[in-house]
Amino acid sequence: MKINRKIFALMTLFILIMTACSNENESVEGPTNEPQDMILATTTSTQDSGLLDVLIPIFEEKYNINVKTIAVGTGQALAMGERGEADALLTHAPTAEEKLVASEDVINRKRVMYNDFIIVGPERDPAEIQGMDVAAAFQQIFETGAIFVSRGDDSGTHKMEWSLWEKASLDPSGEEWYLETGQGMGSTLQLSGEREGYVLTDRATYLSHAGNMEHMEILVEGDDELLNIYHVMQVNDRKYERINREAANLFVEFMVEEAQEIIKEFGMEEYGQPLFFQYTE
């Protein structure tokens, strides 16, 4: 029993110390004024590429704002904006975003950057799409019934893929060779590598995974159709209470001004090419 008590006391003490430590950190951060919280809903691709890990700390430091980055699919990020669960959004599904602008759920939407989508597939290229334009490549994949792996999660990438099928007047849903993962870009890429299927991905995510899947390569790229455009926007505080309008506004401005210098250089060191390109209005 004595030892029981000791260990219990130790555990309690341990937790108290840790709680105390965390409080200390907070008080160190804001002795003058408490940092305010801002929720940024964004796509997994911006987080998985590591770009936000660079940008956010700079923004936080400059404005004394604590950014809570919630990385989800674009569909969910936009839904969070629509519900007023986030203050600012950074997404890449222009058509869907425009709907939110029209319904005044979001305001101050600005173009930030783009990267491009590419079609990646196995080296042996069973559907022989290498070098084709997108529409032809999709047509070819559909006709040969080669395995195609889709995000299937209503994300920006998934929306882009669907618009491409639609433009080609094809409907792959339900086809045996059409696999929907319902997961993030990284997991979907992994799966396509294992199943040797074609996949539409953003370049940044592919580059960070390329080392793990040497038998896969870029087969289609450079088509204008494949531009992946990111917009930043703030959630309309007139529609929802508790929106941090000020912080969201600062973030939008930050992304189109100061962040641009960093975006331009990001990825050069690791991959020898930038992962995103400046693209302001």
Partner: peptide
């Protein structure tokens, strides 16, 4: 989970 989806096994 995040590192796996980033490919950082």
């Amino acid at each position: 989970v995040m590192e796996v989806s980033k490919g950082n096994f």
